[in-house]
Write a protein that binds this DNA or RNA. Structure first.
Lengths: 217, 217
DNA sequence: TCATCTTTGTAACATTTGTTACATAGTAAT
DNA sequence: ATTACTATGTAACAAATGTTACAAAGATGA
């Protein structure tokens, strides 16, 4: 038991030292549950009640929204140091999630139970700031999605998507299929293949089987 | 001075009685500034620092986003009892607004200065709930916008838009031009006229000069 | 009334995106 | 090596949306 807390404390110091005040780190270590997820695991699903929110220690989590049919659209990613701000609201409201959170790769995180979270809002300034910041970041990303959808054509959106993937995956070679991209854009594989081809012809990427090499950064 | 506070208190009791606890209402009355805006006035503009956030007593405020060119897209509306949750974040961060808030009709509101707002987060539970609720509602609307943009065609989006306008304007006769609608959708007038025509042919609306009659609710 | 402005209608055409259908190339399993 | 499967390429066509250009109807002001 002591060992568990010490381990969490170490993790928190590694990844959240600048974010949370000391007493809060201790509280998180005491109340948090260490959890891991494998690639493709679903952390939070649409329509399911949220009982814990994750603090991500490392790995990449994809947040998406679907329309209850087979459609799905990528909203944004969460990384080390992030939390799922939106599940926080769900917690407060005991309401169902509007999102799906899927592990893009192996994830380590600390799960925090709902009830404690509101207490901390009162007790810890760094916690308030953390939550508000999360909102700020997520809202900006949502706005950015809206802007992309409303103002840009697929070609430009696709290129930004690839550049973004490069950033998150820390590699210019993306191991991804056209079909997977099509799912993120709620369109068909043929459409994506076509646009990828023109991006290649413009020298922005190089195509390979199951692999896209992006020529930047 | 006493009179001003009494007036605000009365307004708050009228519109926020169920929302805020008594001592908070008193504080708001003490610190708030009563303000009115005329149709087309801009309450908050993109890129401008936010120093106050509005509590809306009555009237309709339109929240939109542009892409720094002439493009603009409607995000959602605020009504009586709403606040601009997002300007709240801007306050905390002393950052610039990502939104434009425009009066759609005559507005009455109470403006609250930034600095007080964080204090209240600690002191008043109803304030915390109010802020979190605002976020919740706005996020849902943003998500809804994304869903619309990603999954639906213009015809369906336009019809929902009209139905929504009916709800907010409390009338089935909308005094609006095709060009104005086109602006909200970031598209051209011709496109909107075309779709309105087919909606009329399907008996869903009736078109008139500067007026659209919506056949529902 | 005349001139002007605003709003709407409509045609013709361009571009973007979606769909269907099939071919081909690489991969994996036997 | 053969078979089956997965991923990609491509053509041909359909549908949705965007653009340009012009006509006509109603509103406004002199």
């Amino acid at each position: 038991m002591k060992k568990r807390i010490a381990f969490l404390k170490e993790q928190l110091h590694l990844h959240f030292d600048a974010v949370f005040e000391k007493p809060l780190i201790n509280e998180i270590a005491k109340n948090g549950i260490y959890a891991t997820y494998e690639k493709k695991d679903i952390l939070i699903d649409i329509g399911v009640e949220t009982t814990h929110i994750p603090l991500i220690i490392n790995g990449l989590v994809k947040i998406s929204r679907d329309d209850s049919h087979d459609h799905e659209i990528l909203l944004y990613y969460l990384e080390e140091g992030d939390t799922c701000a939106i599940s926080f609201i769900n917690c407060i409201h005991r309401s169902k999630s509007m999102f799906r959170a899927t592990a893009e790769e192996k994830i380590e995180c600390i799960m925090l139970p709902v009830n404690i979270i509101e207490e901390w809002m009162v007790k810890y300034k760094t916690w308030r700031v953390f939550i508000i910041d999360s909102y700020h970041n997520r809202l900006e990303e949502m706005l950015s999605v809206i802007k992309e959808l409303a103002f840009f054509k697929l070609e430009s959106r696709l290129y930004k998507y690839l550049a973004n993937q490069v950033k998150f995956k820390h590699s210019n070679d993306l191991l991804i299929t056209h079909q997977e991209i099509a799912n993120d854009f709620n369109t068909s594989r043929v459409v994506i293949s076509r646009i990828l081809k023109t991006l290649e012809q413009n020298g922005k990427i190089k195509l390979d089987r199951r692999k896209i090499h992006v020529e930047i950064s």
